[in-house]
Design a protein around this nucleic acid. Structure first.
Lengths: 142, 142
DNA sequence: CGCACCACTTGTATAATGCAAGCACCGTGG
DNA sequence: CCACGGTGCTTGCATTATACAAGTGGTGCG
């Protein structure tokens, strides 16, 4: 129950929220994979996340204002949507992915994909971010 | 002792190495603070890292090729230097810091600093990266 | 009713992290 | 010679995070 940041450094502030093995992967699947439901995320994450961890991470991200939670009654699945802070993480995800593709082991296809995404430059990311904002406004498959 | 990646995704590859509460902060202090010794890092990290954790992270980063370790005998302090993969993390650190400054609580001064660094654009980062390469070549205060 | 789906929760085991202390080595000063 | 402080760690132990399997209560549908 200790919510006090360890320091005022902006990098540390980001790391305290996102510095774990799952948060960024969840956001990756929501941004690039379009996932928005619990089950969708759980089965979609190729790395295999446990349900209690997913529950915890989603709650943290909602509390931090990166996601919004939409419970639609009558047995319809709850959906999570990207809030603006999460959308603005796109450059971080792209830069980090490009770095990983260049300096960590991966497959040629995924490497090419990540490098193309980075090579597209900020204009390309802005387009992706605009699409994500659009998707949020339209409100998903209601 | 399980070194197999959970997936081939480049973002996951980066997260598996850097997705914890300390690795990026250590690299931050080496990149922006110029730290290169164990004690220097331990006392320099405003967040307060334990020595066993610092030992472990330095070993991991060396094993991953982000740092090189230089033991200079005769009681002289061991130094760690940034290898090329770590230098190429600069854009990630800057982007992440700018995001943290914008979307997480911090102080006005640090926020301004992080945003200026980002506003400087890739040319500015390239200059910082060039300085870091220079520092490595010159070999620190021998 | 029976069954499947939904988002979780619970229980328990293992791994990661945090904290305080200690260790062997060295160069220096007295 | 001998404390002394600095070096990069290691060790032991408590706390916390993560992993895995199972269960829970709610709903929709045939």
């Amino acid at each position: 129950m200790d919510n006090a940041p360890r320091s005022d450094c902006p990098i540390n502030a980001a790391v305290e929220l996102l510095g774990d093995k799952w948060s960024l992967l969840i956001l990756r699947d929501m941004v690039f994979g379009g996932s928005c439901q619990f089950r969708q995320l759980q089965s979609g994450l190729k790395e295999g996340i446990a349900s209690n961890i997913l529950t915890d991470r989603l709650r943290r991200l909602v509390d931090a204002g990166l996601l919004t939670k939409h419970e639609r009654g009558r047995g319809r699945p709850t959906t999570y949507r990207l809030a603006e802070p999460a959308i603005q993480l796109v450059p971080v995800l792209v830069t980090l992915g490009a770095w990983g593709a260049r300096h960590r082991p991966t497959t040629p296809e995924l490497r090419r994909g990540a490098e193309e995404m980075e090579a597209g430059g900020p204009e390309h990311w802005q387009q992706l971010m605009a699409e994500l904002r659009e998707r949020v406004r339209n409100g998903e498959p209601e």
